Computed example of a mutant assay.
Amino acid sequence: MNEPQKEWINKSIITEINERNVMWTEQQNNPEREELREKFITKRHKIIKLIRETKKSYYKKEFDKYSGKPKKLWNLLNTLTNNKFKQRCAPPKLIVNSIEVTDPHEICNIFNNFFATIGPYLADEIPIQFHVNYTHALPKPLLQNLQMNSLEPCTEEEILNIINKLDSNSSVGLDGVSTKVF
């Protein structure tokens, strides 16, 4: 008899599987006997149901055990799904300017350099008219409503409503002030 491979496999499942295997062998040796085939199919369905119920019960107990403990729950999920985090995150090789690079530190430096310089490079590629006059990039209907000839007075309540609608988890604006300060 084989020992359990998974935590949810128990002695009754193994016993049922062994009985089913004996029935299968018997049925294969006597293919003309329909009653053996039917007994085998019935046993097979019984084992499938037993395995499903046992697995369901096992996983429910495991999840209930870590209810309210997210870190342990994620560890459980990673264990159950066989998620293995790889030590190395760099690709094994990288080809840059027809040169193959295999040193992980050098590959990381190449990626770092690329992402550190791509922003200014792309900004330089934007046509100059957009730097000088951003209205070229705006749709025409929006331009017509952009006139700010006069500012109307507002109430303290309007300002408070606007502040209360701000997302406190958003990053700071151009002024460097966090919305949490407001």
Rank of each mutant, 00 (worst) to 15 (best):
T179V: 05
G176V: 02
P91G: 02
I47H: 05
E152R: 06
N83H: 15
F63H: 11
N2A: 07
M1Q: 13
F114Y: 15
Q28A: 04
Q87M: 10
N18Q: 07
M23P: 00
W24C: 01
N2P: 03
E19D: 12
F115Y: 15
V177Q: 14
S170T: 11
N133D: 11
E157R: 06
I110W: 12
V177H: 13
A137C: 09
I9E: 13
I17K: 03
M23H: 05
K49V: 03
P139Q: 07
V22A: 12
V177E: 15
L36R: 02
A137W: 14
M23V: 02
I47S: 04
N75Y: 14
D103H: 07
P127F: 15
N78K: 06
E3L: 06
L146V: 04
N82V: 05
E34A: 01
S57V: 02
A137Q: 11
R37Y: 09
V132A: 10
R33Q: 08
E125W: 11
P4N: 08
A116N: 11
A116F: 13
V177D: 14
N82Q: 14
N29Q: 10
M23R: 04
L73D: 08
Q5A: 08
Y66P: 00
R37C: 01
N29L: 04
Q27D: 04
N75M: 09
I163A: 09
D124R: 10
I13W: 08
K56F: 12
G68F: 10
P92K: 09
K6Q: 13
G176I: 04
N112V: 01
T54L: 05
H45C: 01
L143N: 07
E26D: 13
L76P: 00
Q28M: 07
N10V: 03
H136D: 10
Q5C: 06
E100A: 07
L50M: 08
I126H: 06
D103A: 02
L142C: 05
R33I: 07
N109P: 01
L174D: 15
I118C: 04
N29P: 00
N164G: 00
E152I: 05
K6N: 12
N78I: 02
Y58H: 13
R37P: 00
H131M: 06
Y66Q: 08
M148T: 11
I14G: 00
Y66C: 02
R88L: 11
P91D: 07
N164D: 08
K84S: 10
L151E: 15
G176Q: 08
F182D: 12
L122V: 09
E53G: 01
H131R: 11
E34P: 00
A137R: 09
N149K: 06
K61E: 14
C154D: 11
Q144T: 05
H136L: 03
Q147P: 00
T179M: 08
E158L: 05
G173C: 08
K49Q: 13
R52V: 04
N112F: 09
L76G: 01
K65P: 00
S171E: 13
S178C: 03
D167M: 07
I128E: 15
K180R: 10
G119E: 15
V22K: 14
L80Y: 14
N21G: 01
